[in-house]
């Protein structure tokens, strides 16, 4: 079976998508049941948990299977350069959609800082609202929310120049090490690839550990929680989703590292590696922005 350069690879039937859909409805349906159980009685029924776990299990199985198929197709040379371009475009637009996801949360932060909190505190166009919250003082970081009986005040916010700064350095450095790994791959120096990629992964994991430590600190000592009003809410949604992305990025890097060990990738065919790198750089840029607007200013 010849694949001339102008014949595009159209895969045969595949059962992975439907498996993915089943995984998705089980995972989300189970999570929904779990959350509603907690809301209603605080106790989670066995059933809800098992549905969630099954869904998660199938999802992981699906991801392995699906990516496995793609990898073996790629290695057996079925993909023309045009297919490669499709993957590149696909990945770029996926990252763009992620950018928009974060954009929404940054927008929320901007709005609350510039509008809702000042208004509640008596400043600006709708400052009249202060009538309803006579004791409330607008400030950012907002330590004491308008109704301190519903939302616990924060004792102290996180000092940007300790853990967050270290984290910034870690992530920025990791972007460099990843680029070194990429260059090494292009030069065909596989042992260097392993070293640099491994280093990047270690930085990523270190970041996650520090971030976890920071969360524990926030909850246990600073009273900075999801329940501490809009400052806590925006803080955790931004850093939380970023952390989730670092986790995903680290898993991707780990897979890439394993594949390098298995001898995958060549100097001119390693799109999966590049896609992972793009993702990592994107996560890095988000962090820089986040470091500025969440921690510093």
């Amino acid at each position: 079976m010849e694949h001339s350069s102008n014949s595009y690879y159209v895969p045969d039937q595949s059962h992975w998508p439907i498996v993915g859909s089943i995984a998705m409805i089980l995972l989300l349906g189970g999570t929904g049941l779990t959350l509603n159980d907690i809301q209603a009685s605080g106790e989670v029924a066995q059933m809800s948990k098992y549905i969630t776990y099954t869904g998660a299990g199938i999802l992981i199985f699906m991801l392995f299977g699906w990516f496995g198929t793609v990898i073996s197709e790629s290695r057996s040379g079925k993909y023309s350069p045009q297919v490669d371009t499709s993957f590149r475009f696909g990945m770029s637009w996926f990252i763009f959609s992620e950018v928009m996801f974060f954009f929404a949360f940054f927008g929320v932060l901007y709005y609350t800082r510039s509008f809702s909190v000042p208004w509640l505190g008596g400043l600006g166009d709708k400052g009249l609202s202060h009538m309803l919250w006579p004791d409330f003082q607008a400030a950012w970081p907002l330590l004491t929310p308008p109704d301190a009986s519903l939302f616990t005040p924060i004792k102290e916010v996180i000092d940007p120049w300790h853990l967050p700064l270290i984290n910034t350095i870690l992530l920025v450095t990791s972007s460099f090490t990843l680029t070194f790994a990429h260059h090494a791959l292009i030069e065909g120096d596989r042992s260097k690839v392993k070293i640099w990629l491994g280093t990047t992964l270690l930085f990523g994991i270190a970041f996650l550990i520090l971030q976890g430590y920071e969360y524990v600190e926030a909850y246990q000592h600073l009273d900075l929680t999801l329940n501490s009003g809009i400052y806590g809410a925006t803080f955790f949604i931004l850093t939380g989703f970023h952390g989730l992305h670092v986790t995903i990025g680290s898993i991707i890097l780990l897979v890439m590292l394993i594949r390098v060990f298995k001898g995958h990738f060549t100097a001119d065919n390693h799109f999966a590696f590049e896609a992972g790198a793009w993702y990592w750089h994107f996560v890095d840029v988000v962090w820089l922005l986040l470091f500025m607007v969440v921690y510093v200013f």
Partner: peptide, 29 residues
Amino acid sequence: MPVLAAVVTMMLMDIHFATSFFNAAGGGD
């Protein structure tokens, strides 16, 4: 579409995780 996903996610947080994105009592709106 990601923005829609973001807004329903914030709803989920407000409902199940005690945040206050859309609640003035916590500084949201």
